[in-house]
Design a protein around this nucleic acid. Structure first.
Ligand code: MN
Ligand code: MN
Ligand code: ZN
Ligand code: ZN
Lengths: 147, 147
DNA sequence: CTTTTTTTGAATTTGAATTTCAATTTCAAT
DNA sequence: ATTGAAATTGAAATTCAAATTCAAAAAAAG
């Protein structure tokens, strides 16, 4: 995606930072990956690239991507931080399988509406939210019932 | 609350563990505290008590309380784990203020219903969920507009 | 080219969570 | 009361991802 690179370049410029080769490649790795990635995960892919990047640089770049609105921290259960795309990937919630760790991304406009209504009731101004449902996915349920 | 003590005693018995003075006092500290507490927070209160308890014992007891269904881990933003009462404190979601860190506990039965509906759509069996809305509380909004 | 500033990444530090293990306590059997 | 096995405790050690440090390398400015 061309314009994500542009967004990052713009962000860096505004901050007086430069778009180095490492930063460009780390963004590339992150965008190419489909699933949610840990810093370590990004690092493992990045170190095989033409321009290798150290763990620290990946760590710092993920932070920049977060600040630029390109990446988003997610925390599906465990304590390790994962990142997912944010730019060009609308807000959504997660249904996380407790058996296999897989997850589905879902969005229910009705729920989102009611969330705002709930905030009104408490005179609360919402900025962002997080909703995760933990349970058993279809495949795991089947695996249990007819093995 | 008498019956929480009983629940804990029952749980410990089932596990072949005994209700020691430390465990009883740690539970007492936890129940007396209104707000969500970290292990460190429980420890700080506990160490002033008649029967002092070490950090490790508090840590392990909080784990037992969790397994007994008396305590529940919550994670409102930051990375440190907090515990809140679970027994006699029905499921609820949180509206967390990003300015002052305060929060409101709320429950919307409509949302809960739609969550189940959403799960049906994905053939997903829900077990538990977590929903947190981050934003600005009434007081903080006022503080900003007319200081 | 020379100087200044930024960036990088190996190494170190941090901090909460968790484990280890020797000392202590509990408790049932002599 | 005495013994001893089993459970409990808690100070200390360990773990491990997150965050920081700092000297070398690279880039930008002059
Ligand atoms: Mn996602
Ligand atoms: Mn709560
Ligand atoms: Zn599954
Ligand atoms: Zn507030």
């Amino acid at each position: 995606m061309r314009d994500v690179q542009d967004v990052f370049a713009g962000f860096l410029e505004k901050r007086g930072l430069s778009l180095t080769r490492q930063r460009r490649e780390i963004l590339g790795v992150f965008l190419d990956a489909k699933r949610h990635l840990t810093v370590e995960g990004v690092y493992n892919i990045a170190k095989k690239k033409v321009v290798r990047a150290g763990y620290t640089t990946v760590f710092r770049t993920m932070k920049l991507l977060r600040e630029a609105g390109i990446a988003k921290e997610v925390n599906l259960g465990g304590k390790i931080v994962k990142y997912e795309r944010r730019y060009g990937h609308e807000h959504h919630d997660h249904l996380v399988c407790l058996e296999c760790g897989s997850f589905v991304e879902a969005l229910d406009p009705e729920i989102e509406k009611l969330q705002n209504k709930l905030c009104n009731k408490f005179d609360f101004t919402p900025r962002r939210h997080r909703m995760e449902i933990f349970g058993t996915c279809r495949r795991c349920r089947r695996r249990k019932h007819k093995p």
